[in-house]
């Protein structure tokens, strides 16, 4: 059984706003990224999963229970970091974390303390005076400290400096390694690519694609860019049996696509050429999604 499962989940806010027919399945122990531009519906989906909003159509199930009807049941297993970080009016971070622990019935604060140490967080600071980053860290500690099996984070890394972002993601990877189910939304593809198992792309309220990061990273087809020292070699190379996808005459550059099994063949051929450089063009999640969105747009334009 999937830990989180949405079936035809629709929340229509009218005038094209909202989310439509979202079908997601998140299995135990998976770390799922949720990508999309601002306003594309990430937060609405997350709110539906937590049962804060009632779907117009379809349903969300968490551990087999529908979210809207059993919100208070399902959130018992979910650690949630909201996108908009605003704390209750309680003074310092310590007081807030204590209050949260009380809500959660949590006695042991050792894990929370170790997280605080790793994040270099000064929880004694007043909540109102905390920087965005400090608030994010505090919110993360609050979500993780109870050791819940599901973690949902809504754009958690915005506002963090690059170094802290790494620490932050490392902590999430650790949690993932411990077997937790994680759903993280972000508009940074790079970040999702480096951490998640799967990434869902949502655009204008529709799931456009669900990409498997393993497949993307281990694609058989690879692209190489080669620059030759002189034009003669460049022209000669064009006649070789490679799939050429881009030519740049002025620089004597070609971009070819080939199966990784044929790498040997390429190297053999290139022995007789004077090559200035050869580099692999990596296939990233960003590129993957861009292609998909381009195709969709192109498709629409053709109609």
């Amino acid at each position: 059984m999937s830990v989180i499962e949405t079936e035809h989940l629709t929340k229509d806010y009218g005038s094209g706003k909202g989310i439509f027919d979202i079908n997601l399945k998140i299995e135990q122990g998976q770390m799922i990224g949720f990508a999309g531009t601002n306003g594309s519906g990430k937060t609405t989906t997350i709110r539906s999963i937590l049962g804060f909003i009632k779907p117009t159509d379809g349903q969300v199930k968490v551990n087999g229970l529908t979210s809207w009807e059993h919100s208070s049941e399902i959130v018992k297993n979910i650690g949630y970091v909201p996108g908009e970080i605003a704390f209750p009016d309680l003074g310092t971070g310590t007081k807030f974390l204590k209050s949260q622990a009380e809500f959660l019935g949590l006695q042991d604060m050792s894990y929370a303390n170790s997280l605080i140490e790793r994040l270099q967080l000064d929880v004694r600071a007043n909540l109102k005076r905390m920087s965005k980053g400090m608030k994010q860290k505090t919110a993360l500690v609050a979500a993780l400290m109870a050791y819940l099996p599901i973690i949902i984070l809504d754009e958690p890394t915005t506002g963090l400096d690059p170094l802290m972002r790494v620490t932050f993601l490392d902590i999430l990877k650790e949690e993932h390694a411990k077997g937790k189910t994680i759903l993280i939304s972000s508009h940074s593809f790079e970040e999702l690519e480096s951490t998640c198992d799967k990434v869902a792309l949502i655009n204008h309220g529709h799931i456009v694609d669900i990409a498997d990061i393993y497949k993307i990273k281990n694609r058989k087809e690879k692209e190489f860019k080669i620059e030759f020292l002189d034009e003669k070699d460049y022209v000669r190379f064009l006649s070789e049996q490679f799939q050429i996808i881009r030519k740049q005459e002025q620089y004597n550059q070609v971009t070819i696509r080939l199966n990784s099994n044929d790498t040997d063949k390429l190297l053999n051929v290139l022995k007789s050429y004077s090559v200035k450089f050869i580099s692999e063009i990596p296939y990233t999640l960003e590129k993957h999604f861009k292609n998909i969105l381009m195709n969709e747009k192109g498709g629409k334009n053709n109609v």
Partner: peptide
């Protein structure tokens, strides 16, 4: 609390509405 969003911390700790 709903406006600022801090109600989320209360409702995500299995406290019923």
């Amino acid at each position: 609390q709903v406006d600022s969003g801090s109600m989320a911390y209360v409702l995500s700790t299995s406290t019923k509405r």
